[in-house]
């Protein structure tokens, strides 16, 4: 894979009433071509600022931002407009032009670029609307559409100039859960069909889990953790990441510490991922090493396309450490909590 977007030592502050308010500190991030990269953080963490630096809706105060190896902060007016044509963007509140029909909204970036004939614009708009499933709404105005439909128009519009990167600023935060899922599915399909790189920001772990390959956790303007979504989700290292994961899983972290005080024996957390998730490993190991076990809590689900399972076990028996080695050998992650 090749790098398509890179933040190097990027800092940004806003000037509010003669005072500098820091928004981002020393951000280093790399996004590979074709991946879906998520940035999660609480409100005010600096997510919007970060994503808006990519197409220079905000300018950084320090550092470099490379798109396809080119430092965007060095671009002149014309270069910047060319860059922006190659970077699509969708927004939480859609930001469609209310005075234009759906078709005219999608055609707008093409008209702005001025590189296509009327015929080309018409056929391209038709194809885009067809792709997002809105052909029959082409001549409606945005006010006549539902939130999910508006975001689909936003996606079609963002794709019109065939960008290589799509930026999504809380694109599903104004949508209900079902609509969110369908918009996320659309983004996933587009990512695969067009090999489009997607950078999205969100405050919802579920969006990250459903869609992203890698994730960075942003807190108070700093990247506090980043990596494969599977890794961060199953073994969140930073307190902020942990809170996001547990919130999305409805797990109360404190309860986990105290609820099992009365449980006998060792407390072990096993993490399966990929195909081992579906193997009858647990029973086999328990039998072989003559252990008693109780399942205290567990979750089995998928992260994007990777199945995973995580079990909290109470174990009793003579040969616990041999059993744990057995698990490790089979590729599981073993955490000894007590």
């Amino acid at each position: 894979m090749s790098t398509i977007l890179e933040f190097q030592n990027v800092s940004k502050h806003y000037r509010v009433r003669q005072q500098d308010v820091a928004a981002l500190h020393d951000i280093d991030l790399t996004v590979e071509a074709g991946e879906i990269f998520g940035i999660i953080g609480q409100s005010g963490a600096g997510k919007s600022t970060l994503i808006r630096l990519v197409n220079l809706l905000e300018r950084p105060n320090a550092g470099r931002i490379l798109v396809d190896g080119q430092d965007v902060t060095q671009l002149d007016e014309l270069g910047l407009r060319t860059l922006r044509r190659g970077v699509g963007m969708i927004f939480q509140h859609f930001n469609l032009l209310s005075s234009r029909t759906v078709a005219q909204n999608v055609a707008f970036p093409l008209r702005i670029a001025g590189l296509w004939s009327e015929d080309e614009i018409r056929s391209r708009v038709a194809a885009l609307l067809d792709r997002v499933g809105l052909s029959e709404h082409a001549s409606k105005y945005p006010a006549q559409l539902s939130g999910g439909q508006k975001q689909r128009v936003g996606i079609a519009r963002a794709l019109a100039t065939q960008p290589r990167i799509l930026l999504c600023d809380e694109a599903t935060s104004a949508l209900d859960p079902q609509t969110t899922q369908s918009v996320l599915r659309l983004l996933d399909e587009i990512n695969q069909e067009l090999n489009l790189t997607i950078v999205l920001i969100t405050h919802e772990m579920n969006v990250i889990r459903t869609l992203c390959d890698r994730v960075a956790v942003l807190d108070e303007g700093r990247v506090v953790e980043s990596g494969e979504v599977v890794d961060v989700f199953l073994h969140p290292g930073h307190p902020v990441s942990r809170r996001f994961v547990f919130e999305s899983e409805d797990v109360d972290e404190e309860l986990l510490q105290t609820a099992f005080e009365h449980v006998d024996g060792r407390l072990i957390r096993l993490t399966f991922r990929g195909d081992t998730t579906y193997e009858p490993l647990l029973g086999r190991v328990m039998r072989e090493h003559e252990l008693d076990f109780s399942i205290l809590s567990g979750r089995i689900d998928r992260i994007k396309n990777t199945p995973y399972g995580q079990l909290l076990l109470g174990l009793n028996g003579e040969h616990i450490s041999e059993a744990l080695d057995h698990f490790r050998h089979a590729g599981l992650t073993v955490e000894e909590l007590r």
Binding site: R81, T82, R84, R85, M89, N95, L96, F108, I112
Partner: peptide
């Protein structure tokens, strides 16, 4: 809405 101006800017509009 400022967002509309921003969206138009993000398209590369002059």
């Amino acid at each position: 809405d400022r967002g509309i101006i921003e969206a138009t800017q993000a398209m590369g509009a002059s």
